[in-house]
Design a protein around this nucleic acid. Sequence first.
DNA 1: GTCTATAGCCAGATAGAC
DNA 2: GTCTATCTGGCTATAGAC
Lengths: 201, 201
Amino acid sequence: MSKETSAEEKILTAARRIFENKGMSGARMQEIADEAKINKSLLHYYYRSKQKLFEAVFKSAFNTLSPQINTILSSDKDICEKITDFTYNYTSFMVKHPYLPNFILQELNRNPEFVTELISSKNIPGMKKFKNQIKEAVKKGKIKDISAEQLFINILALNIFPFIGAPLLKGFLETSDKEFKVLLENRKTEVADFIIQSIKL
Amino acid sequence: MSKETSAEEKILTAARRIFENKGMSGARMQEIADEAKINKSLLHYYYRSKQKLFEAVFKSAFNTLSPQINTILSSDKDICEKITDFTYNYTSFMVKHPYLPNFILQELNRNPEFVTELISSKNIPGMKKFKNQIKEAVKKGKIKDISAEQLFINILALNIFPFIGAPLLKGFLETSDKEFKVLLENRKTEVADFIIQSIKL
DNA sequence: GTCTATAGCCAGATAGAC
DNA sequence: GTCTATCTGGCTATAGAC
């Protein structure tokens, strides 16, 4: 952040911004260099190729997003509390990084092999825990009979989609950017209510 | 579909497939020509430029997706029946066009001005109706107090996200393509239950 | 309408001076 | 490490024969 930021970091920050907006194929090395206020050939000096630079950015982005998701899997809290916490934290986080999910899902759809590389390497130990927790909660009669998989999909859908689908939603709802921000702000708590409502007995 | 398909149609079909997979900047005119089994210069003969061809594809894609969404706004049915119908129909439709939402949202995020051009021109008459319907249902005590906007976002999120987020979800859930298809199949009815559960009193 | 050939440009990558 | 200059290939687009 200071003037003393190394060239390598400046490049990564600039590349993140450009790649997140335009994707791998839409981004231009010159544009990244301009954004970083650095000479274009330095990009190659530090990262060798566009592909390598992209991969650095993508991994960094994925490793920013994925712990956010892991929290809901791994924490020890009660299921409802988990959902409430996750929704609040995730939406707060996303308001600061609105392009992140779009970028990641875009490139993941074009390059599905990335997933295995990135996810299975970490082995997501939380998922098993989450599935067990749901099964038990169902058995004990704490929540309705729902599969952990569907619940997981629903939680992510309700939290992530508003950011990916923003332009479409704004269009259909005929809301200004400002009004839409208010809607998102409200979702920090409303989404959890919505989910809990539908699984409680 | 037959051998008699005109060149223009063959191009549009091929372009749809390529653009949906790679986006505007990732697609190559040569690739589209190959896919259409047609000479590359014919693309320019019929559509003048890559940009124009892309716009034709995008508009056609948008006009395929948007009526699907409009059904939930405009129909005269009871709110719960609407949700049930929409979920079933939309998911059935998406299984056949899994790349569509990803393509549209991607390009919409890169080019937000498309929205105003495409949506406001149709004026989505259904949205007002939908908002009124929700307000009345709330007033009459048929459903919980929820804003039409949030409910609309939730419905779209739960129906669309599983397709956009498929690679991510498959990774986290550690499901095969086949298992994931089963999950999607189940969502045709489960999503509606989930939503209705959370708005009914 | 359909083809071949090619113009013209632009982007990624490298060479080499400092 | 940082810069300028340049190579090289690939891509959109067009010219022009048939």
